[in-house]
Design a binder for these strands. Structure first.
Lengths: 113, 113
DNA sequence: TTTGTATTTCGCAAAATAACGAAATGTTTT
DNA sequence: AAAACATTTCGTTATTTTGCGAAATACAAA
C-alpha cells in the first residue's frame, strides 16, 4: 500500500560492502592483508589487533561473507588473503555511486555552505 | 599491559566513513543527492525511501556527522547536498587502503582458491 | 592413539543501531 | 498572534552487533 519504493540491488550491495568495512578491526585486516601482498594467518593477526581470537574469527567470517577476503586451508593454518576480483568490484561500485559526475561549476553553485 | 595496539587514525576514519555508508537508505540518499547534481529537501527524500520522517532525519544526521553531506537552511526547507571535498577525501582513503598495489602476478601466486 | 596446535562455534551479556509516533523547535503565512 | 508547515528531538521498543571465555572441531606430530 505504501508508495515507498524498495532499494535497488546496487544500493543494497554497496551498503553491504560498507557494512563489512564498518569496523576498525576489519579495515585493519584488509589493510594488513593488502600490505603483505600475500596472505596472513589468523594467529598472526590476533597479535596486532585489540580483540581476542574468537572475535577476530567473527570479523574474518564477515569479511569472507562479504567476499572481500578468502581463506585457504594450509595445514595447520588457515591463510587469509584479499579477494582481488571482488575488491576491484567493490572499489568500482564505490566510485560509481556518483554515476553522473558533476562539474566543479555545478558543485560550487549547489551549496553556499 | 596488553600488548594489543590501537588502530591508527586512518583506519578509524575509513571505518567511520564505511559505517556512515552501511545502510541502504544512506547509500540511496548519497546516490540521489549526487544524481540531482544539486540539493534535496528532506521532504522530497521521504517520499522515495522506505522509512518515516524521523528515521530519515536520523540518517541525514549521521551522514552529516560523517561529513559526507551538508545541510543548508533555506526557509522553510533545509537543503541537503553532497560535501564534495569530504567525498573526494573519502574516495581517496578508500582507494589508498591498498597503498602498495600488487601486480597481477603476485595476486595470482597468493591464493590458489 | 594421545597430545598439542590452530581456528571456529556456542552461549551469553553489554552496547549500539534502527524505527516509530508523539512532542518540540523554528519559520512562514494568514 | 494564531495556524500551518518542515524538520528534528525525545522516549521507547525490537533487533543487531560486538566481545568474551569455554567448548568444539580439525589436523599434525609424537
Amino acid at each position: 500500500m505504501s508508495p515507498k519504493p524498495e532499494y535497488s540491488p546496487d544500493v543494497s550491495e554497496l551498503a553491504q560492502i560498507a557494512k563489512a568495512m564498518s569496523h576498525p578491526v576489519r579495515i585493519y585486516i584488509l589493510k594488513k592483508l593488502s600490505q603483505m601482498q600475500s596472505c596472513c594467518y589468523s594467529g598472526d593477526l590476533v597479535l596486532e589487533v585489540p580483540v581476542g581470537r574468537s572475535a577476530l574469527s567473527q570479523h574474518l567470517k564477515e569479511l569472507k561473507f562479504a567476499g572481500l577476503i578468502q581463506g585457504e586451508i594450509e595445514p595447520p593454518f588457515i591463510k587469509y588473503c584479499i579477494n582481488r576480483d571482488n575488491w576491484n568490484k567493490a572499489q568500482k561500485a564505490f566510485e560509481n555511486l556518483f554515476d553522473a559526475p558533476v562539474s566543479d561549476v555545478n558543485a560550487a553553485s549547489c551549496c553556499s555552505i
